[in-house]
């Protein structure tokens, strides 16, 4: 049975990738299991300079999901390279650096810096809903998606994934824009903007007022967007949003994903990604699937 997949020339031993922001830099979960069993690890969103993120309450539980407003807390490029890269380099798995910035220039400078390390790929995060400037601002309008992708691509010596926001009018247009700008792959979805209110205090639960919704609650939206993106671009797609089980992985692949990322599930259960790799093998056997790649885009349209 073949579990490995290839995305923009990078070989993943299986299609399970830990999603940005839910897996730190891999150290914490490596205390639970050898994280090298995963196809890949995507780092917490990095910025050129360190960021402390938002103060106060950053999480709220919602039915079958959660809202977060971390605000891109991260150690910045230099400390990432100095303190986290040496550990990541010891792992036998694909390392993807998730990069973000307030301006196009920041994103370009950061990409240039990170490309000098041994990371395998760059994931450009133009879709973070939890920062006041930048982030999602680049990710909404197709023209700005194309522009920033083009600029970052020019500075990027590694395969470039562009991570799309779901908080847009037409995901297909944004996927196409990223492809036109030179993206080697597209990942989606980031979190959906949402809100939680405490009726007793009449205040938002999150200090940032709004937050990003993730978890099983967003899976139907994520599947639809994966499917629409798949129909509109030729570059490989990494699907995510609410993946909890091996069945979910197959569904995303059938919709068009070549690999998937697993986010909130890691937060709900420290062994989530590890168990997914194991149960995926069992499920493929039961379904008599020889090569997992045959699933990608195999949806039978009604």
């Amino acid at each position: 049975m073949k579990l490995s997949v290839n995305i923009a020339g990078v070989e993943f031993k299986n299609p399970i990738i830990a999603a940005s922001g839910t897996f730190g830099f891999g150290r914490e979960y490596n205390r639970f299991y050898d994280v090298s069993v995963l196809g890949g690890i995507c780092t917490k969103g990095l910025t050129l300079l360190p960021r402390e993120g938002n103060a106060g309450t950053r999480i709220a539980e919602t039915p079958s999901g959660m809202l977060n407003a971390v605000g891109l807390q991260n150690p910045g490029a230099d400390r990432f390279i100095r303190e986290e890269m040496p550990f990541l380099e010891t792992l036998n798995t694909v390392v993807i650096a998730n990069v973000a910035g307030n301006t196009e220039d920041d994103c370009v400078a950061l990409t240039r810096k990170i490309c000098q390390t041994n990371v395998d790929m760059i994931e450009l995060n133009i879709s973070c809903p939890n920062v006041k400037e930048g982030g999602v601002a680049f990710g909404v309008c197709p023209t700005s998606v194309e522009n920033i992708t083009r600029k970052v691509k020019r500075a990027c010596t590694k395969p470039l994934i562009v991570k799309l926001s779901p908080n847009v009018s037409r995901i297909a247009d944004n996927a196409r824009a990223a492809q036109n700008g030179g993206a080697d792959a597209i990942s989606l979805i980031n979190t959906l903007t949402g809100m939680a209110i405490d009726y007793r205090t009449r205040r938002p639960v999150l200090s940032f007022t709004t937050g990003g919704l993730s978890g099983p609650a967003i899976k139907p939206v994520a599947l639809r967007m994966t499917y629409e993106a798949y129909k509109s671009v030729s570059v490989p797609i990494i699907g995510m949003g609410g993946i909890m089980s091996a069945e979910d992985v197959l569904e995303f692949m059938i919709a068009g994903a070549r690999a998937v990322q697993v986010g909130s599930a890691n937060i709900f259960d420290p062994f989530a990604s590890f168990n997914l790799v194991k149960t995926l093998t069992t499920l493929l056997k039961a379904c008599k699937i020889e090569d997992i790649s045959e699933l990608t885009g195999s949806l039978k349209v009604n």
Partner: peptide
């Protein structure tokens, strides 16, 4: 503090602390 993963990976459990003249999460 409200928590997510509980193991240090998701950064949703911020507690603001003074450290070296700065406020850090």
């Amino acid at each position: 503090t409200r928590m997510g993963c509980g193991v240090g990976a998701c950064l949703v459990c911020a507690c603001a602390v003074h450290e070296g003249g700065k406020t850090v999460q």
